[in-house]
């Protein structure tokens, strides 16, 4: 039996092809449109014909879904004016021509510094457009398993989604470990300690905290199956009302009150009786997490 292709190693286009039913993908403003970033060009930096993001629609298990996939290999999947506008436009389209769901393959360190102001505004516009799609009844599902993870503004966007499917290799946070180390020192966060980085930002700890709703193995088939399961379960957008947000508020207040010494996912796993969480296979981890929850 051949091993299913790694999600982490795949390009954005390979991810889209691997997630959707064969031959169903239609891209909007694709590479042929040559919508490149004039701001990168002005700084003499390389451009990409799709500005690092693929948007379009296709079928997944026969259902029409809108897909957005960021290319982590181009500028770390960072959001610039054109890249952000394509994502925003896709969410607006979800309101005018409703798909069953939006599948959002996030692979991004956040704002693209070469066009930082435009990127920041673009992410704000994406947040508002995403809210509008959810209000229109379209669920948005984030897949986080690329090499750049979901950080900065895209870390916030990921947590606005109705489901977050992660692999153990995926990472989710706000400030990257390198930024924290640079500003606060290596004692605060040693960005070269990869195991520590994963115990703070990785898929298993995010699943433990309930932020990732699903933890899957690092392969395209597993990610596709997770989305198929969401479709089959008839998942709609998670409603948010004053009552549900007050409940979230109480949950988050309880977490912030955890003792100040808690700075490593391992401490949390020790407390939960999952001391060897980092070593477990995904399936075993999911089973054990369910047992202790």
């Amino acid at each position: 039996m051949t091993r299913a292709p790694s999600y982490r190693e795949a390009t954005a286009r390979h991810r889209v092809a691997g997630l959707l039913d064969a031959g169903t993908f239609v891209e909007w403003v694709g590479p042929g449109a040559r919508a490149t970033s004039p701001h990168l060009a002005a700084l003499g930096s390389p451009v990409s014909f799709d500005d690092g993001v693929v948007v379009g629609e296709g079928r997944l298990a026969g259902e029409r879904v809108l897909v957005i996939a960021q290319e982590g290999l181009f500028n770390g999947g960072a959001v610039g004016e054109v890249h952000g506008a394509k994502i925003r436009g896709a969410f607006e389209r979800a309101c005018t021509q409703p798909p069953r769901a939006v599948v959002f393959c996030i692979d991004s360190g956040g704002v693209r510094l070469h066009e930082a102001n435009a990127g920041l505004l673009a992410i704000s516009e994406i947040m508002r457009a995403l809210f509008a799609a959810q209000s229109a009844g379209i669920p948005v599902w984030a897949l986080v398993g690329g090499s750049c993870g979901a950080f900065g503004g895209m870390g916030i966007v990921a947590r606005l989604c109705d489901a977050v499917v992660m692999s153990e290799e995926g990472r989710l946070g706000l400030s990257g470990p390198e930024v924290i180390e640079t500003v606060k020192g290596v004692e605060e966060f040693d960005a070269r300690d990869r195991a520590l980085v994963w115990r703070v930002t990785g898929g298993k700890i995010r699943r433990t905290l309930g932020e990732a709703t699903h933890l899957v193995e690092d392969n395209l088939v597993a990610f596709r199956e997770a989305v198929v399961a969401l479709l089959a379960a008839g998942q709609g957008p998670v409603p948010f009302t004053l009552e549900t947000l007050q409940a979230s508020q109480a949950r988050l207040e309880a977490r912030t009150a955890w003792d100040a010494a808690l700075r490593d996912g391992q401490s949390l796993w020790d407390r939960l009786g999952l001391a060897d969480a980092a070593l477990m296979e995904t399936e075993q981890f999911n089973r054990r997490l369910q047992e202790v929850s």
Binding site: I156, L172, S175, V179, V183, R206, L252, R255, L262, R263
Partner: peptide, 15 residues
Amino acid sequence: LSRREELLGLNGYFA
């Protein structure tokens, strides 16, 4: 900028 805040999931609080 803090490791503890990242562990808690600061991005989720912002969301």
